[in-house]
Lab assay of single mutants.
Amino acid sequence: GSPGIQSFLPPGWEMRIAPNGRPFFIDHNTKTTTWEDPRLK
């Protein structure tokens, strides 16, 4: 199987799917959430 997208996120980050189907990202380091992919910064 191919590695999940989770493995490509920075340490402490998690990806979830919102009720509307959009992915969002949780930064457990700062306890914040964002719509922006942290890998694109």
Results as ranks from 00 to 15, higher is better:
residue 16 R to N: 07
residue 24 F to N: 02
residue 14 E to M: 02
residue 32 T to A: 07
residue 33 T to V: 14
residue 37 D to L: 05
residue 34 T to D: 02
residue 19 P to Y: 08
residue 18 A to V: 04
residue 21 G to C: 01
residue 4 G to K: 05
residue 6 Q to F: 03
residue 13 W to M: 01
residue 3 P to S: 12
residue 14 E to F: 03
residue 16 R to H: 11
residue 4 G to F: 10
residue 21 G to A: 02
residue 15 M to F: 05
residue 27 D to A: 01
residue 4 G to P: 14
residue 10 P to Q: 04
residue 23 P to Q: 07
residue 20 N to S: 11
residue 32 T to M: 10
residue 18 A to K: 05
residue 32 T to V: 10
residue 19 P to Q: 10
residue 38 P to K: 01
residue 11 P to K: 12
residue 41 K to A: 15
residue 24 F to A: 02
residue 2 S to L: 13
residue 31 K to F: 09
residue 22 R to N: 07
residue 36 E to H: 09
residue 3 P to Q: 12
residue 20 N to A: 02
residue 17 I to S: 06
residue 9 L to H: 01
residue 28 H to A: 04
residue 26 I to Y: 10
residue 34 T to L: 03
residue 7 S to K: 14
residue 12 G to Y: 05
residue 8 F to D: 15
residue 19 P to H: 12
residue 13 W to I: 02
residue 12 G to E: 03
residue 9 L to A: 01
residue 23 P to K: 07
residue 22 R to T: 10
residue 33 T to H: 09
residue 9 L to S: 01
residue 8 F to A: 15
residue 5 I to K: 12
residue 22 R to P: 02
residue 28 H to Y: 09
residue 2 S to N: 12
residue 15 M to W: 04
residue 36 E to I: 08
residue 3 P to H: 12
residue 20 N to R: 01
residue 39 R to D: 04
residue 3 P to F: 13
residue 37 D to T: 04
residue 36 E to Q: 09
residue 9 L to M: 10
residue 12 G to P: 04
residue 15 M to Q: 08
residue 5 I to C: 14
residue 15 M to D: 01
residue 8 F to Q: 15
residue 31 K to L: 11
residue 16 R to T: 08
residue 23 P to W: 08
residue 31 K to H: 14
residue 24 F to P: 00
residue 23 P to I: 08
residue 5 I to A: 14
residue 16 R to D: 07
residue 5 I to W: 13
residue 33 T to L: 12
residue 11 P to T: 10
residue 1 G to H: 11
residue 16 R to A: 11
residue 9 L to V: 02
residue 10 P to S: 04
residue 37 D to N: 03
residue 6 Q to L: 07
residue 26 I to H: 05
residue 25 F to A: 00
residue 30 T to E: 06
residue 18 A to D: 11
